[in-house]
Design a protein around this nucleic acid. Structure first.
Lengths: 198, 198
DNA sequence: AGCTTCTGGGTAACGCAGTTAGCCAAGCCG
DNA sequence: CGGCTTGGCTAACTGCGTTACCCAGAAGCT
């Protein structure tokens, strides 16, 4: 009987694909083994546990997401970069809901965890995009958190099928991006407006 | 041996409390039984399965959240209602992360599912709040989805401990609310601005 | 009060998923 | 060719959700 020739990378990639199909909570060692044409215990030659597998998927997911956003925003700035990056992220999450979920439940397991630079890459892409709006440096972190919250919330809700009303979700998403773009441009024009308004 | 005197309501409430303590994914029938001073199989006299328990917690959670938002926005309008409602929701989610998670993974299991009116109540509270901004009726659904995405995303990320940078999360949250308030007031003043901007 | 019925406990046991231990063949390398 | 490492395998254990079935106590009827 020939060997399947698996290693950590292939197992993790197959796990990510399977999670996208059956949902992150539906991912099981038995199902993954079957998918790879191998018996369940054999997987433990490549990953330490199911939690370890999930962590590997999370790292893979965050790096893929970072690549996706970087590629989309490359060569653009301001509103164009915002829309391109946000739409690219949204499309990626909808195409890969299982691995995105893995990335959300994951937590760093030490200072050398590759999960840390992976999420840093995502945040760095958004930060670079925000630079195009020339915000007050003190406010950039708040804008970043807002953007992250909104994109994470929207894509998560959409992937879960939580937008029930008949109104077009595409329109809502671009409306939201327009809203953000206009607001950020106000800050660009007059950085003290918000602080003074309080 | 005296009876514990449980029923579906008490079991569900205890399950929600336990989920808040150990996390929704850490909730187990055995742990809940122990907490209630009863053997595991006895729980099945009150809930049909663990999935049924989770669903009950989800309904409880959405109703509690709806009450929380309604109470906070009561008697206020515009910016005051927005801030009060959002802060109330945020505080509630941080205090009850387990049951909020239950509410997020839940799905309606039929047209008579009490989960449906529960989430409707939440959405209705936000819709009522948005009415204070006198938006174009066609745009209200987009504003609602944006608000929901943002609040869901922010509170979820915060509860998961995903905001790492030292900057104060409270400040970020109020900054975000200010941002939304200003943007919504622009729409109030000139409802066609966004549509024309595209 | 005594009898019945229903409700809410209990124990025993099953099945499945994750996991570990230990065996053995395939492939590589001297 | 012979030994070592790698990556499969089977067998078996554990823990959890779940079911089947039994029994006591509370409530209600006569």
């Amino acid at each position: 009987m020939p060997r399947a020739g698996l290693d950590r990378t292939t197992v993790t990639a197959a796990g990510a694909a399977l999670a996208d199909e059956v949902g992150f909570s539906g991912l099981s060692m038995g199902l993954l083994a079957e998918r790879l044409g191998v018996r369940t215990p054999s997987l433990y030659k490549h990953v330490a546990s199911q939690a370890d597998l999930a962590h590997g998927i999370a790292v893979l997911a965050m790096n893929e997401l970072a690549d996706t956003i970087r590629d989309a925003t490359q060569g653009r700035s301001g509103r164009e970069a915002l829309v391109a990056g946000a739409q690219a992220m949204r499309a990626w999450v909808l195409a890969h809901p299982g691995r995105y979920a893995a990335g959300n439940v994951a937590a760093a397991r030490g200072p050398d965890d590759p999960f840390i630079p992976a999420v840093q890459r995502v945040l760095a892409s958004w930060t670079a995009m925000l630079h195009g709006y020339h915000l007050d440096p003190d406010q950039e972190i708040h804008a970043l958190r807002m953007l992250r919250s909104m994109l994470h919330g929207f894509t998560t809700l959409e992937a879960a099928g939580s937008f029930q009303i008949a109104a077009d979700v595409d329109v809502s998403f671009t409306w939201m991006l327009d809203f953000i773009d206009h607001g950020l441009r106000v800050h660009e024009a007059d950085p003290s407006r918000l602080a003074g308004g309080r």
